[in-house]
């Protein structure tokens, strides 16, 4: 096990610096006849979306034609996200306009799932919209292993996360939810998956042929479910990860992280059960409860977090028709 782990780490962990020669990647991509779609899911990101579209489009479409399609898919922003994005030349879509016959649900996972239907590429690369130090490496670092290695189907980003500037502390791993929740769970149930440095990072690239075969939780669980489902189907060899150096983004409150963990746990338990790792689970509560204290009085805050799931895209009729060219 340990030596296998080391093996996988050696073979399937990259640094973006290995792929600086974008022109060469473009040639290899063309030789293999692959097309690449870039998708940025958004919800009220007018502050950062302009720069992401500008830089990624001008470097990876205009200068080097690595990306064939550039889409911003929006979950219903109330700010100027879409205006700014289209101003800089992205194709913009409302998640709710895509596959209207299946309805519209709230959440980032929903947005990513609909992208599979909307976008045409053989490879889809997802990049979150809230990266303030955006750079082309966030894309080429993730698609490169897919271009070079046929057996790899899913590539995750990991970062050198600046946790605490003032004291100079650096963590060597993921964020708080990763270290306190995901890593312990993986260690218990999926030790091989602990090799993935940042299982929750929002930047990853994957082949359409695997994305269309897995269900998508519509909310917080989507990244976790991808890993568990693809691991179950194809094993660790299907994954790769790329070090993209530093990523600067907004920080979440501990409350928000609690809610997120609650969503992830639902996804996790459902998978444990479905994959036969535990015999049975009771029906899970969907209310997340926490406390708030005001003037010495405690009160409970209750929020509903339902991790609904979308079925594999392949099972959707509209998608089958689209693929069949109807």
């Amino acid at each position: 096990m340990t030596s296998n782990n080391q093996d996988w780490l050696d073979k399937n962990t990259f640094h973006h610096g290995e792929f600086w020669d974008i022109l060469k990647l473009v040639e290899e991509k063309e030789k293999k006849g692959l097309s690449i779609s870039l998708c940025i899911p958004t919800l009220n990101e007018e502050k950062t979306i302009g720069k992401e579209v500008l830089i990624l489009r001008s470097e990876l479409m205009e200068r080097y034609p690595l990306v064939d399609e550039f889409a911003v898919i929006d979950s219903g922003s109330s700010d100027k996200t879409l205006e700014v994005a289209s101003n800089f030349g992205a194709d913009v879509y409302l998640s709710s306009d895509i596959l209207q016959e299946v309805g519209d649900k709230r959440g980032k996972g929903e947005n990513l799932w609909k992208a599979i239907h909307q976008l045409k590429g053989d490879i889809i690369c997802y990049v979150d919209a809230d990266i303030s130090n955006i750079h082309p490496r966030f894309v080429y670092g993730l698609v490169a292993p897919l271009i070079r290695r046929d057996e790899v189907s899913y590539v995750k980003a990991f970062y050198d996360r600046p946790l605490n500037y003032s004291s100079g502390l650096r963590s060597s791993g993921g964020g708080r939810v990763t270290e306190i929740l995901i890593r312990p769970l993986f260690s218990l149930f999926y030790p091989e998956l602990t090799n993935i440095v940042q299982p929750l990072s929002g930047e990853y690239a994957a082949r359409r042929e695997v994305l269309e075969t897995i269900p998508f939780p519509i909310g917080y669980g989507v990244e976790t479910s991808h890993l568990l489902d693809l691991y179950e189907k194809f094993g660790i060899e299907t994954f790769a990860q790329t070090d993209l150096d530093r990523r600067v983004h907004r920080n979440q409150t501990t409350n928000a992280l609690g809610k997120m963990s609650f969503g992830i746990l639902q996804t996790f338990f459902n998978r444990l059960h479905a994959q036969g790792k535990i015999d049975q689970i009771p029906s899970l509560e969907t209310f997340y409860r926490r406390f708030e204290v005001e003037d010495g009085a405690y009160s409970q805050i209750v929020q509903e977090v339902i991790e609904e799931e979308r079925p594999p895209m392949m099972e959707i009729e509209g998608y089958q028709n689209r693929k069949a060219g109807k």
């Binding site: 007018e46 502050k47 950062t48 302009g50 720069k51 500008l54 100027k80 205006e83 700014v84 101003n87 800089f88 303030s132 130090n133 600067v248």
Partner: peptide, 12 residues
């Protein structure tokens, strides 16, 4: 200076 957060924002 080098300690300044050098982040640029792009609007329309």
């Amino acid at each position: 200076n080098a300690e300044t957060r050098h982040v640029l924002n792009v609007g329309s």
